[in-house]
Simulated assay, not measured.
Amino acid sequence: MTTTSRSPRLLLLSAVVLALTGVGLLCLPQGSPIPATPAPTATDQPTEALSTGKDPSGMAPSATPTGSPSASPSALPPHGDGPAGDRAVQQSLEAAWPADLPHADERTLLTAGRALLRADATGIGRAKWPTVFTSRDGGTAVAPAFATARFRIQAAIARQDGGPDKAVVHLVWAGQDRGGAFADLRITDLSFARIIKKGAVTWTPQPRT
């Protein structure tokens, strides 16, 4: 029968036509997608911001936040700045002379150096240092030259002085002498030697040269 004999050819022809149609559609040029705008990066900013210190909007950079250091730690405060400038003096000493002693030795030396300087300048605590403040004939050493109320140690550090058994305590201080003249940023160096006796370590002040 004619219908039955043509049906497979019609189905095959239809399949070929559909296949060709599909291939043709795949070969048609597609619309180009719209490229996404890339996010700006640090290198996209104008180079003027690096050379002039301004941001891309033309505004000057903001000021240093409150509390941030505005000067180098080595910058000393002006004379007469008072206790407010003592921290800067301490930072200056530490920056100029890095620590080189064990923490325990440094702490011991700082305590002794502060007490010895105070005793020398004001007379307070001299009994603790009989060999330092007693003259060769047994008399008392020179009378204190600075008023107790106007004496202040501004900064202090302890460092090695030519070896682990020798140290120097570097002190910066302020005081008013007996003539009424007040001055700060005075400098005193006190030398100490480490002595080990029966396992005990002591730091002994040395004569000033």
Results as ranks from 00 to 15, higher is better:
residue 1 M to H: 12
residue 6 R to G: 00
residue 10 L to T: 14
residue 10 L to W: 14
residue 12 L to K: 13
residue 16 V to H: 05
residue 17 V to R: 10
residue 19 A to V: 12
residue 21 T to P: 01
residue 21 T to Q: 12
residue 23 V to Q: 02
residue 25 L to F: 14
residue 27 C to R: 11
residue 30 Q to K: 15
residue 31 G to H: 13
residue 33 P to W: 07
residue 34 I to Y: 00
residue 35 P to K: 07
residue 40 P to L: 11
residue 41 T to P: 03
residue 41 T to R: 12
residue 41 T to H: 05
residue 41 T to G: 14
residue 42 A to E: 14
residue 45 Q to T: 14
residue 47 T to F: 08
residue 47 T to G: 13
residue 52 T to P: 06
residue 53 G to M: 08
residue 53 G to S: 00
residue 53 G to E: 09
residue 54 K to S: 10
residue 54 K to I: 01
residue 54 K to M: 01
residue 55 D to G: 12
residue 55 D to Q: 10
residue 58 G to V: 11
residue 60 A to K: 08
residue 61 P to D: 05
residue 62 S to I: 11
residue 63 A to W: 00
residue 64 T to P: 02
residue 65 P to E: 09
residue 66 T to N: 01
residue 67 G to F: 05
residue 68 S to N: 06
residue 68 S to D: 03
residue 70 S to K: 15
residue 70 S to I: 13
residue 72 S to G: 01
residue 72 S to M: 01
residue 73 P to L: 08
residue 75 A to R: 01
residue 76 L to I: 01
residue 79 H to A: 13
residue 79 H to W: 06
residue 81 D to I: 04
residue 81 D to Y: 00
residue 82 G to E: 08
residue 83 P to Q: 03
residue 85 G to W: 08
residue 86 D to Y: 11
residue 89 V to Q: 08
residue 90 Q to H: 10
residue 91 Q to V: 00
residue 93 L to R: 05
residue 96 A to L: 13
residue 97 W to F: 14
residue 98 P to W: 04
residue 98 P to L: 09
residue 98 P to Q: 04
residue 100 D to R: 02
residue 101 L to P: 02
residue 101 L to F: 06
residue 102 P to V: 12
residue 106 E to M: 09
residue 108 T to Q: 15
residue 108 T to M: 11
residue 108 T to E: 13
residue 110 L to K: 04
residue 111 T to K: 10
residue 111 T to A: 15
residue 112 A to T: 00
residue 115 A to D: 14
residue 115 A to H: 02
residue 116 L to E: 06
residue 117 L to A: 09
residue 121 A to D: 01
residue 122 T to H: 08
residue 126 R to I: 07
residue 128 K to R: 13
residue 129 W to N: 05
residue 129 W to D: 03
residue 131 T to N: 13
residue 131 T to M: 09
residue 131 T to D: 15
residue 131 T to A: 14
residue 132 V to E: 06
residue 134 T to W: 02
residue 136 R to K: 15
residue 137 D to F: 10
residue 137 D to Y: 01
residue 138 G to S: 06
residue 138 G to Q: 07
residue 140 T to P: 03
residue 144 P to K: 06
residue 146 F to I: 05
residue 148 T to I: 08
residue 149 A to F: 03
residue 152 R to K: 11
residue 156 A to G: 06
residue 157 I to W: 06
residue 158 A to E: 02
residue 158 A to L: 01
residue 162 G to V: 05
residue 165 D to E: 01
residue 167 A to V: 02
residue 167 A to G: 10
residue 168 V to S: 11
residue 170 H to N: 06
residue 170 H to P: 03
residue 170 H to C: 02
residue 174 A to G: 04
residue 174 A to I: 09
residue 175 G to T: 07
residue 177 D to V: 10
residue 182 F to P: 07
residue 185 L to Q: 13
residue 189 D to Y: 13
residue 191 S to H: 13
residue 192 F to C: 03
residue 193 A to L: 11
residue 193 A to S: 14
residue 193 A to V: 14
residue 194 R to Y: 07
residue 195 I to K: 07
residue 198 K to R: 00
residue 198 K to S: 15
residue 198 K to Q: 15
residue 199 G to F: 01
residue 201 V to C: 12
residue 202 T to V: 15
residue 203 W to V: 09
residue 204 T to S: 10
residue 204 T to R: 14
residue 205 P to S: 03
residue 206 Q to A: 12
residue 208 R to A: 15
residue 209 T to K: 15
residue 209 T to E: 14
